[in-house]
Simulated scan of single mutants.
Amino acid sequence: MRVILRLLLCVVQLWTVNANVEKTIFLGPPPVTLPNVHPSLDDLNLPALTPAGRPVLETQLAVQFPADAAPRGVESWYLLKALESGRRYEVRICWPATQPTDFWLDAFSVEHVFDTPKLISSLAAYSEHRQTLEPPGSAYLSEGASSSSQSLLLLRIQAAASYYSTNRTLMEYPPAVDADIILDPYLLNILPRSLAPTAAYISIVAVFAWFLSDYIYRWLLAIAAEPPPSKSHVD
């Protein structure tokens, strides 16, 4: 059992070396019906993630060093749609350890964002920036988000570079960070779905190790209980 635990610890440590992970956990909100008028949620041109169709988004996130005006760097926004009301979810962001970055993830209801001036201004600025980069209808966009009643959330990611270099250009223009954004639903609101195969594997190994250790223990007891062989004496 100790050997198995050590192997699992080594796997976790190797993952930690190769990549960093930050996440936020939340419950799916009640479904909402947004008015089908312009400008609508679809007009924001946000990248969208869904638990079944598009749970993973491979992207590059712009970053900047913390400043008084932006202590948490650059803000980017994403749409989480087709959620299940009351179900637990988590959004993880994974990025290489070779690109030191601090991330903050927050999930907001649509109503809360629209009623908060600071959040709506940040969302509008990001949407306007995206309009110049990708035209509406590109992959992973939020088409159809406001066409029916569904559970929606807006995800804000803040990214700040967290390293120091003597290269002035690198300090003034930090490169974008390669990242995977993952929307992961929980099974029975207990365990993330992506971890279910790992949990099943560990359980099978643990049960096998339990029976194997019991067999070895009984075998050692049987050997210990055997009488020592008698020695013949020659007169």
Rank of each mutant, 00 (worst) to 15 (best):
T169Q: 13
L220S: 08
T132G: 14
S162M: 09
L188K: 14
V207I: 15
A161D: 00
F103M: 04
L141Y: 11
Q131G: 11
L183Q: 00
I93W: 01
F208S: 15
Q99D: 06
I182E: 04
C94H: 12
I182Q: 02
A196M: 15
S109I: 09
E143H: 12
L123F: 06
Y217P: 06
Y217S: 13
D214E: 13
R156E: 07
T101S: 01
G137D: 05
S122Y: 06
S121A: 11
D102T: 13
Y163R: 10
I181L: 03
T98W: 00
S109R: 12
S148P: 05
M171P: 00
D180K: 14
A200R: 12
L188P: 07
L187P: 05
S162F: 09
L221Y: 03
T101H: 02
S142F: 01
S213L: 15
R87Q: 09
T116G: 02
P117N: 04
N167C: 10
A107R: 05
P135W: 08
A161N: 04
A160G: 02
G137C: 03
I190T: 15
A107P: 02
D184T: 07
Y215M: 14
Y163L: 07
H112G: 01
E172N: 08
A196Y: 14
S165I: 01
A160E: 01
I216R: 15
D106I: 10
S149T: 07
N189S: 04
S148L: 08
D115S: 11
P175L: 08
S148N: 07
A107Q: 07
S149C: 01
F114Q: 13
Q99T: 13
S194G: 08
T169S: 10
S162R: 10
S138E: 09
L133I: 03
F211D: 08
N189R: 05
I181E: 00
Y163H: 11
L183A: 03
A206K: 07
I216V: 13
E128W: 05
D184L: 03
P117K: 06
Y89D: 03
D214A: 12
C94K: 10
S121W: 08
L191D: 11
I181A: 03
E111Q: 13
K118F: 09
A124R: 07
A199M: 10
Y215D: 13
